[in-house]
Design a protein around this nucleic acid. Sequence first.
DNA 1: CTAAGTTTTTATACGCGTATAGAAAGTAGC
DNA 2: GCTACTTTCTATACGCGTATAAAAACTTAG
Lengths: 232, 232
Amino acid sequence: MPARTGRPPKISRADIVSAAHRLIEAEGTESLTMRRLAREVGATPMALYHHVHDKEELLLLLLDDYAAAMPRPELPDEPGERMAAAALAMHEALAGVPWIVDVLRADDLLSVNALWYPETIIDAAVRAGLPLERAVAAYRIIWHYTAGEITARAAALRRRGEGRPTYRRQVFATLDAEALPRLAEVGGRWEELTARDTYGEGLRALVAGLLLNGLATGRSFVKRSGSDDQMD
Amino acid sequence: MPARTGRPPKISRADIVSAAHRLIEAEGTESLTMRRLAREVGATPMALYHHVHDKEELLLLLLDDYAAAMPRPELPDEPGERMAAAALAMHEALAGVPWIVDVLRADDLLSVNALWYPETIIDAAVRAGLPLERAVAAYRIIWHYTAGEITARAAALRRRGEGRPTYRRQVFATLDAEALPRLAEVGGRWEELTARDTYGEGLRALVAGLLLNGLATGRSFVKRSGSDDQMD
DNA sequence: CTAAGTTTTTATACGCGTATAGAAAGTAGC
DNA sequence: GCTACTTTCTATACGCGTATAAAAACTTAG
């Protein structure tokens, strides 16, 4: 029964998504606006909203296509390495998407086709000996770190893009060396140091710490200080 | 010489910032728009732009006031605990600012009055035995994790605020249990598990891993996989 | 053929951040 | 007092995401 009731659609969700891909490819991220996209598919802006709930959903659909196309890396067997490798792949995938920041305000799962990453990381954590609940927590912690790093990376890129007097230079110029000796010591090297890619380093530290914590009976080398594990 | 040349200002940067504070206090974050704020100080919207570069700068100024007023916690002496305590304080401070997400797209330093946090964390890392460069890297890694966690937290709050069918429920409903066994195993408990506050846990793991890594001569328990420490 | 019902598309409008151009309101030099 | 010069503020406009209401284009029931 291909005959449906109601006015026949002029555009489809797939049309919209593929037009969005084309648009981004051809004219860059900034050209992807609902109005421009509507012109591209030959409809009015509001027509789009019958096919996607809002712009954020559209970006998620784009990301989903993107995630589906990403190659999945060979994974090492050792659980810790496996977690790290999957997280690095996730990071690499996200870092390649220029509009990612607009979608990273979402939660931890992103799109259906991206679920391979949490699945793999959680599975590796379980194989490392963590109970399922803690493995989920470990994944989320890794996710938070990853999303935060990507966001900062995008911000840094943006900063270089604009001409602005960097603000940080101003901060370090008017820095009170008595109150903030370490920062003063770093001084002008801040720019240089923060240009380095420390994702891998942080990730390895994080994984090491998570597995250490999860396997040991003692909670952590850091004594619990009373205010640091409330439930929100 | 209090006599300056040019048209005398009707409003000042301080006026704007304090009006913004009032506005947020009285009517919530969403009411803070440049146009509304202009009405509040009795000027046209564009007049504001002679005192702040853009809205993001305004938010940074607000955050700066906020950071100045935040109490600074007693810090333990043991370096690892000290790092964690400072980071927890930073996290707590940020988590209390509802519009923080709009400002977290910025970089690592935020505002002048917030510099106490990086200073303290870096100092503690140095006391723990890390060379200065690695201490800075450690701080940035902690920052990325913290910013990411705050962003996700805000997203979760937003999600609860809207009525939307959660999308995650939909994801887990149509989940391919063969391809994604761990996620299927978690199933409906995802919502519950991800509502938990894991910041403290992740932070302890991170600090432990960072200090482990920094002090040991070997790089990490994770073998370097070749693609994970490029410089960008 | 017509009337009702359903789905999709259009028209219009709102408030947003902010770019640009120029008017307003002072001081300083003559 | 007039003219320059400087600083600040106003007027207008653009494109953005999207809410709301109505029109358009079908199918189905009678």
